[in-house]
Simulated assay, not measured.
Amino acid sequence: MPRVVVFDETGGPEVLRIVEEPVVEPAAGEVRVRIEAFAVNPLDRMVRAGQSPRPVRLPHARLGVEGTGVVDALGAGVTGLAVGDPVILGAVPDFETKGAYAEYTTVLASRVVPRPASVDVLGAAALWVAYFTAYGALVEKAGMRPGDRVLITAASGGVGRAAIQIANQIGAVPIAVTRHTAKQESLLAAGAAAVIATDREDVAEFTRLHTGGKGADIVLDAVMGPGLAELSLAAKLGGTLATVGWLDPRPASFPANPSLTVHRYMAFADMTDPEIVRRVAAFLAAGVRTGVLRPAVDRVFGLNDIIEAHRYLEKGTSAGKIVVTV
């Protein structure tokens, strides 16, 4: 029988275990997908550790909000898809019972998008959540335009690297922020116009240096926490701050730049909007076809090594996405 990763209690990576479950037939309006690979995201760690934004239904909870595979079966009433179609899971509803950490899962047909022919399985598994988040925050909310100077925190992560590439595709100027000087060269190679390493540089001061004294037009922040007030000073007067994550779990400070327009962006809300999904899918397909968008995969694990994949995630040293092949 197909394998599924589950957990019966919250805690460290060791609570994860692999079980076998029968294949489920898709309900009306659903498709069954044979998973080829899935990504391990910070949200998965939070859910597993009991830090989820909403309660987790135990026991036998599941994980995984994104992945890629092949349509294996169609439920009644599904049109526009065929068995054998390669797809990306656009958003996994109720991932605690239908997560992507499995050999098969069933999802609403409206929640899969075609997998671009120009991206391989590993890249497809790493594409949707990071790039959707970066695109949604920068384009849909912040209105990023060509020439905008965009300051990107946690730039070595999946969303950060996606934001660098999306800024370049639009014609904006991405300025990357990282905690470690050692990551400077890799971020420049990834497309950053400049890199600010906080282990030796002040973010606001060096942002002004790289923007002719004006400050960033847009700040994309995945960290939050007490440093948000200081970070806001890196933006120009009348600029935009878009927050997309909570890597620092401590309470966020109020922005010290009162002229900012602030957006708290939650990608999963937009992933249920068909029009936004259509725009994002078209943008990403064009980007991977031209080679501007290149999903960064840091490490690849097998399904049997899911505990090690989560241990690696918890180190916080990955430069790109962690992908598990099934």
Results as ranks from 00 to 15, higher is better:
Gly99Pro: 04
Asp273His: 12
Ala256Leu: 15
Ala222Lys: 02
Ala154Pro: 05
Arg299Lys: 14
Thr325Asn: 01
Leu81Trp: 14
Ile152Leu: 13
Tyr104Ile: 06
Asp85His: 09
Pro55Gly: 08
Lys321Pro: 00
Pro13Gln: 10
Ile18Cys: 10
Asp148Leu: 05
Ala61Tyr: 13
Gly302Asp: 12
Ala100Pro: 01
Val277Glu: 01
Arg250Tyr: 01
Gly225Pro: 05
Pro13Ile: 10
Phe268Asn: 12
Gly136Tyr: 11
Asn41Pro: 02
Val223Asp: 04
Ile175Phe: 05
His310Phe: 12
Gly123Trp: 04
Ala190Trp: 01
Tyr101Val: 11
Val92Arg: 03
Val112Phe: 02
Ala154Ile: 09
Val83Gly: 02
Ser259His: 14
Ala182Asp: 14
Pro146Ala: 15
Leu209Glu: 15
Pro42Glu: 11
Val195Tyr: 11
His310Tyr: 06
Ala267Thr: 10
Ala134Met: 08
Val323Asn: 04
Ala194Val: 00
Gly29Val: 09
Ala282His: 11
Gly69Tyr: 06
Val65Ile: 09
Arg115Trp: 07
Pro26Asp: 03
Leu74Ser: 13
Glu185Leu: 11
Asn257His: 14
Ser52Cys: 12
Pro251Val: 11
Asn168Arg: 15
Ala194Asp: 12
Ala252Val: 01
Leu58Asp: 05
Val119Ile: 15
Val65Met: 08
Val177Gly: 11
Ala39Asn: 13
Leu63Val: 06
Leu187Thr: 06
Thr198Gln: 09
Trp128Lys: 12
Gly316Ala: 09
Ala197Gly: 07
Lys321Val: 08
Thr178Phe: 03
Val24Arg: 15
Val262Trp: 07
Ser186Phe: 09
Ala285His: 12
Gly291Tyr: 04
Gly75Arg: 03
Glu25Thr: 13
Val33Gln: 09
Val33Asn: 08
Thr106Glu: 00
Phe283Gly: 08
Ala229Glu: 10
Gln169Val: 13
Ala192Ile: 01
Gly245Ser: 15
Gln169His: 14
Pro146Met: 02
Ile196Phe: 07
Val40Gly: 08
Tyr265Pro: 06
Glu103Thr: 08
Ala286Ile: 07
Val113Ala: 15
Thr68Cys: 14
Val40Ala: 03
Val33Ala: 08
Asp85Asn: 14
Val219His: 09
Phe38Leu: 07
Thr317Gln: 13
Met224Gln: 14
Ala222Met: 11
Val262Phe: 07
Ala269Arg: 10
Val139Tyr: 13
Asn41His: 13
Thr272Glu: 05
Ala142Pro: 03
Pro22Glu: 10
Val70Gln: 03
Val33Tyr: 06
Gly213Thr: 06
Ile166Asn: 01
Gly67Glu: 07
Leu209Val: 13
Ile307Leu: 00
Thr325Val: 13
Gln51Tyr: 10
